[in-house]
């Protein structure tokens, strides 16, 4: 039987608390949870063969629920869904080999939680506004490629040029929104990871690591951003365990 790892925890002086907590919890498919430790780091695991692991929504929810509950009591690093090793010994050796990196990551997320911010737009409306702007810029500053010969290739270049300019305007616009977001959140000392233009409607998908105590200030800051950009829809979620802030590769 192989072993699935849910999270790596800094237990320090609370091992009996973890023991009691795990006794009242179940892992995927009702599996018993147990702990494997090396020095001050503990892995929460359950027996689970790789072949029997079904990667569906309900299993992922069960997995996330374990991590969520543990995160309320301990500093932890969530492991990627489906992290399975062949034996208890292999996991303890992994903890030993990666001890320094795990400790560094645990230190980074201490007393902090992850918050997600997605910014949606009505892409047709936004593109129409930008197209209008782009055409205005073309009239005043830029010219299209001369169409004297009016050849097919010239027409093609002009069409592509218009698309290129529109895309540039969209990037500039999204960058300006990101600059506002980071400007607002920097004062809360957040660590952020932001992806832009994930889909035509999801123009920003960001995650932030910050002290849970600053939750209300974060909500307030997002409210200010929403007022500044009424055409966009800001959605803030959290607090989550630090899923996106574990930065080490298991050796």
């Amino acid at each position: 039987m192989e072993i699935m790892i849910y999270a790596l925890l800094s237990v320090k002086k609370k091992p009996e608390r973890l023991h009691a907590l795990l006794a009242g919890m179940n892992g995927i498919a009702g599996a018993d949870l147990h702990q494997l430790s090396f020095d001050e780091i503990t892995a929460v695991v359950s027996n689970m063969s790789r072949a029997s692991l079904i990667a569906d929504k309900s299993t992922a929810m069960e997995y996330a629920a374990v991590i969520e509950t543990l995160s309320k009591h301990f500093i932890l690093l969530p492991m990627r869904f489906g992290s399975v090793m062949e034996s208890n010994e292999a996991i303890i050796h992994m903890l030993e080999r990666n001890y320094h990196d795990i400790q560094q990551n645990l230190l980074k997320v201490e007393r902090k939680f992850e918050f997600g911010l997605k910014v949606f737009c009505d892409s047709e409306k936004l593109m129409a506004e930008l197209r209008e702007k782009s055409e205005a810029v073309s009239k005043t500053q830029r010219t299209t490629v001369a169409e004297i010969k009016n050849s097919a290739s010239r027409i093609w270049v002009n069409k592509k040029l218009k698309e290129h300019r529109l895309e540039e305007l969209l990037v500039t616009y999204v960058d300006s929104v990101i600059a506002e977001i980071t400007g607002q959140l920097d004062r809360l000392k957040t660590i952020s990871k932001i992806k832009k233009m994930v889909t035509p409607t999801t123009i920003i998908d960001g995650v932030f690591l910050l002290d849970k105590a600053l939750k209300d200030e974060l909500i307030h800051a997002v409210g200010d951003l929403q007022n500044k950009f009424p055409g966009l829809n800001f959605i803030l979620t959290g607090p989550w365990p630090p899923y996106n802030f574990v930065d080490f590769t298991v050796k």
């Binding site: 929810m61 949606f120 889909t199 997002v222 959605i235």
Partner: peptide, 24 residues
């Protein structure tokens, strides 16, 4: 995960579900 995880949203819940659905 009983806690409400949506801290701020001015749109509709259906709208969010639709957008998240598109991403997945």
């Amino acid at each position: 995960m009983s806690e409400n995880k949506i801290l701020f949203n001015t749109g509709s819940f259906d709208g969010i579900s639709e957008e998240i659905g598109k991403l997945t």
